[in-house]
Design a protein around this nucleic acid. Structure first.
Lengths: 344, 344
DNA sequence: TGTCAATGCTAAATCGATTAAGCACGCACC
DNA sequence: GGTGCGTGCTTAATCGATTTAGCATTGACA
């Protein structure tokens, strides 16, 4: 039932637990333990399948070899994929992952942070919710290793790993313009978070750069807290009151998914009646008929960079701040065709 | 930097750490600590925002208040959704979740189990890979609280929570027959795992019950280890060599997704040229045009039952075995129409 | 007055590892 | 022969909580 402890090995080897600890931590040489004794201990440890008790070790050293991962929603395609690779990468360094979803809710995020502190995680990967500034600031001041993902807090310089939201949205806008579309709407959320702002900025910059008009009425913001049904109904209303649109850019994957649902319900044919691009890729976008053009995030790179930055902090107590911005890729599918009719 | 410990409270309250521990663990009455002292300690603890050190507590009590969750693939819709609810439910009982994906690979599963043991999790929720019998048996013998999910090992009586695979597949088969289809294929994996066998059995039972023929050549097994491209190409070959099929039942969500991809590539119109049903629901199935009929698993119920069974084991050291089988729901969409042409 | 029990609390061991400090021994050197 | 130093190991404290055993004090009762 109970595991093998360092004492058991010590007893069998006829030495003190200290000696065993030194050897098993690779400090045999440094601590001048003889080759003979070292070998004997290592053999015994292997034979008894000794597994150090992480709790005891953690209690003494203050390190748990665990990292906390806070995502917006683990059931969301993007976050689930990142989480998976984060876990794999962390494992390579001997770290395990404790995770939780915030639903972008401040209270939930606070709760998660509290639990993670309580569990003494060594480092944090955080998708910050709105107004999480104070908590992030505190972690920063406590010099906790931490990386933000998907978004950052402009007021607080921290490590982060993100996709280039501006460029992604810019590329999408430019692409639609080059296909000949001119009446292009942007459907986004009311969220004031930086990633959403950047997507808005990138899109409008593309419009401006190509001297295309982008009137207010072509910008639809869906309340951040809206339920799925509310969001779908708002998008439908928007579509119905703007029947002459050429194309729509959806600023996140779930809005894009809702959009498809609206088009389906309203009998609007994607590609033929209207062009669409969505931020983020998704099985649905790939396999939908027609396929949905999207701005894909480099999920593998994001996850790898997150762990790399975190490990840097954990191991070298780095002072410098790492801010990684990765390029987004425009994946062209059939949801965007060249505009045929030159007049409405 | 360092947290508040029980000693700090003891010092400030002018009592011993023992007393503080008793009170904070709700044993004040039992251990005959006076109301006065109890109140003072509770107030101080609240004021200082005392958080017990889980490592120390775990070291002493042998409990970590952590459960290990082993899924097949956290990036898979079904598992991600279950994981999310498992986490929420576990949280209600004060438990955190450590998770990992096996990719249905025995070696990965062994590695995960080892890490979880090493981390001293209190209980396990496991999606067993093939040939994991020995490890499960060992956990069982060690009386570790454990629940299997999605499948079980017929040779080893254990707790499990699953959907009724037989009934789900039966319903799907029967539904297709009642729509007038007769040449119905089943595309499944070569996996010998129980959940896949049951789906096969349920489907063939429906055929038999309705005296429909189900020739060998209508059963296609895709090698369990096949890559996505291999699988897609095999499905295509199968479709091309059986051009007169009325309908296809895919036994898992990812095969259904591959199927859609094949139909798309081959220019086969789902619903019109062929009917399809897939096991598991998915955003893609819901929003595809036409919508894909599927056998949906009760994800919430599954997750809730998993935690309930596990908590039972954890708290009452239950001896009895809990085997929960939940009903699957046939979600009817447009991918299955009534058969029109009575002759080919 | 002495015994016993109840009351209210504390001392100290414990979980299993890490680590600062130091002990004993042998050898070299003046 | 005493001092100093390197070698090879051990002792004991420590992390923070839990828990067993038990110590004072008080009051009841014979």
């Amino acid at each position: 039932m109970k595991g093998i402890s360092i004492k058991d090995i010590a007893k069998q080897a006829g030495v003190s637990p200290t000696t065993v600890s030194f050897v098993l931590n690779g400090k045999g040489r440094e601590k001048r333990i003889s080759e003979q004794v070292s070998k004997k201990i290592l053999k015994l440890a292997a034979k008894l399948k000794y597994k150090p008790n992480q709790l005891a070790r953690g209690l003494r050293t203050g390190k748990t070899k665990t990292i906390g991962l806070i995502v917006e929603d683990i059931a969301n395609n993007f976050f689930a994929n990142v989480a998976k690779i984060v876990e794999e990468e962390a494992d390579k360094f001997g770290y395990k992952v404790l995770y939780g979803s915030t639903e972008d809710n401040l209270v939930k995020a606070r709760g998660l942070l509290e639990v993670l502190e309580y569990r003494q995680v060594d480092g944090y990967i955080i998708t910050p919710t709105p107004n999480l500034d104070k908590e992030i600031e505190m972690l920063k001041n406590a010099r906790k290793p931490m990386v933000l993902m998907d978004r950052y807090l402009p007021q607080i310089p921290t490590n982060y790993v993100m996709v280039n939201n501006f460029q992604g949205a810019y590329d999408a806008g430019e692409y639609l313009l080059k296909l000949g579309h001119s009446k292009i709407a942007l459907i986004t959320t009311t969220s004031e978070q930086i990633q959403m702002k950047e997507r808005l900025n990138g899109f409008t910059a593309a419009m401006k750069a190509h001297r295309a008009s982008f009137p207010r009425k072509f910008l639809k913001k869906i309340p951040f807290a809206a339920s799925k049904d509310e969001a779908v109904s708002q998008i439908k209303t928007f579509l119905e009151s703007n029947p002459d649109l050429d194309a729509i850019f959806f600023s996140t994957n779930y809005l894009g998914v809702y959009g498809i649902e609206c088009f389906k319900d309203l009998g609007i044919k994607i590609g033929d009646d209207i062009a669409m691009v969505s931020f983020d890729d998704h099985d649905l976008f790939r396999l939908h008929t027609p396929g949905i053009t999207c701005v894909a995030q480099p999920i593998h790179d994001i996850a790898r960079n997150l762990i790399q930055v975190l490990m840097n902090e954990l191991n070298h107590n780095n002072q410098q701040i790492n801010q990684v911005v990765l390029p987004a890729t425009l994946v062209k599918r059939e949801s965007c065709k060249k505009r045929k009719k030159l007049t409405v």
